[in-house]
Design a protein around this nucleic acid. Structure first.
Lengths: 112, 112
DNA sequence: CCCATAAGTTTCGTTTTGGAACTATGGCAA
DNA sequence: TTGCCATAGTTCCAAAACGAAACTTATGGG
């Protein structure tokens, strides 16, 4: 079965995962909840490639989870902010965070 | 950045996602919460390939989320059950389910 | 004119995935 | 004792996704 076919699955968990159930997407949303909104910020914070970030942002906007917003008119620049629909993913992020805190202790530092 | 490097990230959300943040893994866990435990059951319920299922089960066992348990001694057969650590992912599954119910309505039936 | 900033896009080699066939183990029945 | 079934995997190959890095587009400033 193709992953994309999951968006019409009977199970609401599966339908949710058809959007956020991949490597990186939930990390972008985490960054949004931390207050980040710009392309370069997501790149720096998450460590994903520009290539993939661009594709994920497009999907999140199409899904109505993020909104692409022009924030500069000089050189036209855009950033991404959570919609109401996106905001409502907060509980999901929080439960994943809580589980991680309890069950996934850090073994060694991420960087020096 | 490689996905596997995420397991030592400072952020507990990222560390959690280093295990469950891929296509399919959370669906396996959903099935476990629905009472399924056998290889063939996961295959039938989720629609993923045997190949990927085998790999994901191995990772979940290594992570201490599932336990591989012999359930038959005639032909030796094994199934998979949630550990306490795995059980504690229930809130995460429930928040994803609730969000899906609210924001991801079914467009058409999955099958005829 | 040249450099910097910032949001992307393109290219290309590597890794992961999907699909389907195949393997291993043992029960059961003719 | 042979052959078929069930079940948990493994193997193989082509297709899709991904990572890394260079390139593009648009504008402002020295």
């Amino acid at each position: 079965m193709k992953w994309s076919e999951l968006s019409d699955n009977w199970c609401p968990v599966a339908r949710t995962l058809s959007i956020v159930g991949d490597r990186w997407t939930l990390l972008i949303l985490r960054d949004c909840f931390l207050g980040l909104s710009r392309f370069e910020q997501f790149i720096e914070s998450s460590g994903m490639t520009r290539h993939i970030l661009a594709e994920r942002l497009k999907r999140l906007v199409e899904a109505g989870i993020l909104e692409r917003r022009q924030y500069s008119d000089g050189p036209k620049r855009y950033d991404y902010v959570l919609t109401d629909k996106g905001q409502e993913l907060a509980p999901a992020l929080m439960t994943l965070r809580d589980w991680g805190k309890r069950h996934m202790p850090v073994r060694r530092a991420t960087a020096g």
